[in-house]
């Protein structure tokens, strides 16, 4: 996951205070289920992103506990109510303990 840049986009891009905006996120990850076997019949160990979290200026907005039923390269879209301008922090954690994060700055037009 090291050279992996998660992507996030808000729409509308220039919201007003009080608007509910949509946040679309996408991250590259194999999301290995732990149910598949390699060609030697050995079970491929599970490695999925099990946790996703979104906070705005430290306040929780949305989070997800993910299981192997979520597709590879997880796409998650959720909403947020804009109360002020600030930073929306997004964090993903996988079974190997690797953490990915990105920040979207929300400017109020």
């Amino acid at each position: 996951m090291s050279n992996n840049k998660p992507r996030a986009k808000i729409s509308p891009a220039n919201p007003k205070v009080g608007d509910v905006i949509e946040v679309k996120t996408l991250v590259s990850h194999v999301m290995e289920t732990g149910l598949r076997k390699d060609k030697n019949g050995q079970v491929i160990p599970r490695n999925i992103i099990h946790s996703f979290k979104a906070t705005f200026e430290g306040e929780p907005v949305f989070s997800g506990d993910l299981y192997p039923g979520i597709s590879a390269n997880p796409y998650i879209a959720f909403h947020m109510k804009v109360t002020k301008p600030g930073a929306l922090e997004l964090t993903w954690v996988d079974d190997a303990g690797e953490t990915l994060s990105t920040t979207v700055s929300v400017t109020v037009g």
Partner: peptide
């Protein structure tokens, strides 16, 4: 999956 919302989510609406 389990998705957690707060009043700051604005709407309980999720896609994936």
């Amino acid at each position: 999956a389990t998705f957690h919302f707060t009043p700051l989510s604005g709407t309980a609406d999720v896609s994936g």
